[in-house]
Nucleic acid binder design. Structure first.
Lengths: 229, 229
DNA sequence: GGAACGTTTCGGTGCGCGCCGAAGCATCGA
DNA sequence: TCGATGCTTCGGCGCGCACCGAAACGTTCC
């Protein structure tokens, strides 16, 4: 393969991003959430047929992955490498402005006013918890805990082994429809939820699915997982 | 600036790389050397007029910088960020094959059979030395030594302070025509060259500009700078 | 079973851009 | 001063691709 063939391969990779509509879609997806094709069309300011064609190109390139749920097609960035690529290309244009502090305040409130999904945390709190567990490598890409994760659970007094023996998947990522990101479900999600209630870190709210993070709970979750940074 | 304007900016950045000829030129420049416009045209397999137009686009985008020397126009990648961008886009295609060991052997010989440029090291050895000083942060982007660099020179018994007081620029990067990369010139380049001769690490060769790295010199330069890795 | 909704396919249209050769400009050496 | 060399500019040509609406397909709900 000579220089020009290598150049053609590089050019093809860059040309996926070199269209305004596809680039706009990638920037929208940079928020880490999954969006439907119709939503992406509206946000990018193009027809749904145009969006469908562009999404086909983005999925083929490997930058974007799709998940089907009935008639809905959810799209998200494939992985951290894809995100890094889009971000580093963005930085060669202009750096995006820092987020306003009001936004951080709203996010903090969303974490505190958590929602449960059956027997595990959902909403902003559930998404943040999954992100924190991954960032601290307490769970890996597979279905189980890491060694560090097992020690961490033992320190919480969590009997993770019986939850792991259950027929139910232990570490399961579930797309959170309101946040458009994954939260932690499965046996581990349920066990952690139950344990946090026992420890008094979470308390049930006025309606069954509403839970709130208590004062001690906030301090502990901040110290152990950095949830409220 | 709305989502679509941000998308347009990202698309423009990517479209610079999305042409096969420009992408080929960027891959050629990834070797860290400076090439003339005519040479780049030949290697990319395009007419010189085509190359001129593409180089204009690459320089405008900030990915490539130019240096003029008489009728010659030398082009090189702008900085490490530009190289990282091109490399990460390449990695989303296929990884380049590792260099053959024969090449490493030839490079080693080039380092040993060094050449001097007036009063400082040139050729492969001079380029390698500059790279090693930068990698170990003994010199910074500015015109002087770092604190670590001053200690390093003191350990060599180098009186760098009198060389720094000279009217001559202390750390000067000079484009090495044979290697197409910068080597170290200026007061520091001369002082190091003189000191290496004093220490017996370099010895003059049969013609005045040829110098060779001695046995002890090779061991010391390997230990202190990793020149022969 | 039919209506509503989300998505995909396809043909038509228009535009941007890459290619080149010829001519011109700047630099260098004899 | 003139010829050679490196590079730039420009007009012409051709092609690839993004846009859209209409129609069709698949899924969900009543």
């Amino acid at each position: 393969m000579d220089a020009r063939e290598n150049g053609a391969a590089l050019a093809r990779a860059a040309s996926v991003i070199s269209d305004t509509s596809r680039a706009t879609i990638l920037l929208i997806l940079l928020d880490g959430r999954a969006w439907t094709a119709t939503e992406l069309a509206a946000q990018a300011g193009i027809a749904r047929s145009t969006a469908s064609e562009h999404l086909h190109v983005l999925v083929d390139s490997g930058l974007v992955v799709e998940r089907r749920a009935g008639r809905h097609r959810y799209l998200s960035l494939a992985d951290a490498r894809a995100a890094a690529l889009v971000e580093s290309l963005s930085l060669s244009t202009v750096a995006p402005p820092p987020k306003p502090s009001l936004r951080a305040i709203a996010a903090d409130r969303a974490l505190r006013e958590a929602r449960s999904c059956y027997d595990h945390l959902a909403g902003a709190a559930g998404v943040a918890m999954l992100g924190a567990l991954e960032a601290r490598e307490l769970i890996g890409p597979g279905p189980g805990l890491t060694s560090a994760g097992e020690r961490w659970c033992a320190e919480l007094g969590l009997d993770f082994e019986s939850a792991a023996r259950s027929r139910r998947p232990f570490v399961r990522r579930c797309l959170d429809w309101t946040e458009r990101r994954d939260h932690l479900a499965g046996g581990l999600g349920a066990a952690l939820f139950e344990r946090f209630l026992e420890l008094g870190w979470l308390a049930r709210g006025p309606v069954p699915r509403a839970v709130r993070v208590t004062g001690p709970g906030r301090a502990e979750l901040q110290a152990r997982l950095g949830l409220f940074e």
